[in-house]
Design a binder for these strands. Structure first.
Lengths: 133, 133
DNA sequence: GTCACACCTGGAGCTGACTCCAGCCACCTA
DNA sequence: TAGGTGGCTGGAGTCAGCTCCAGGTGTGAC
């Protein structure tokens, strides 16, 4: 089994820091305690890494760690609570959509501001033609 | 001049809390100290409110308060630094675009996850037709 | 065997962005 | 003139999400 990563490798693979990986585990954000080597060192298996990838996506889209912990708890509890998991994801999806729309709108305002500065600077570079000459 | 708002009114108008309005002012995020009434109470004028609206958009799109303070500082310094302001806004715009793209991508993954749960629950509700009968 | 190295734990510290509080003042109303 | 309301200040507290640290262990290289 070549496919178990050390914590340093897992950090590179997931884009998280070593400290953050340990912190997430302590906080119950993972589906299980990461398996250990004989020496007690963490060995991340593919299932651990793919869960962390999902976790990263949820976090990057703004789901608080508390909610991710709740979701992990549901998954750990096994089949039977799929409706609640679905509800959690749908609620998050909804917020993400709203946030996307908002951001796009605000981006428009920022773009207009940029346009104004561009015009200002353009005018400086090519001043209005002088009256005589 | 009916158009100057108390801090309580400004809070409603901007969606910020009274404490946050004072905090932003203390931290130099506004273009000027908000004018005061004879009693020393803040009176927000239209120009203050419209700056706060821009501030809100920058913040809502993820620009750190430190960078907003820097931008405010440039605006306060008057004409002559438009290139730097433009640079700041363009850099922010770029990050917002990247973040939008990322979020949209992650949303896709979340949607797929939702699809899986929906399928699971659907199957439960309408079990496969039985063999005999 | 001793050195470096990667990793371990529990707990403290930090950053960003607020939020709350005590103690005070000014205006209005009855 | 007494009480209530709304605002003031400076400073402390809070919360999320990490990040750092001291002191310790197991493993391989020389």
């Amino acid at each position: 089994m070549a496919s178990a990563l050390t914590i340093a490798e897992a950090a590179v693979a997931t884009g998280l820091s070593i400290d953050t990986l340990r912190f997430y585990e302590r906080d119950g954000l993972l589906l299980r305690p990461v398996p250990r080597s004989a020496a007690g060192h963490r060995r991340y298996e593919p299932q651990d890494l793919s869960w962390i990838e999902l976790l990263n996506k949820l976090r990057a889209t703004g789901l608080p760690l508390r909610d991710i912990a709740r979701y992990a708890e549901l998954v750990r509890a096994g089949t039977g609570n799929e409706a609640e998991r679905l509800e959690l994801l749908r609620a998050h999806r909804q917020r993400v959509l709203e946030q996307l729309a908002q951001t796009a709108e605000h981006l428009g305002a920022i773009d207009r501001k940029i346009g104004i500065y561009e015009a200002t600077l353009d005018m400086e570079r090519t001043p209005a033609p002088e009256m005589a000459s």
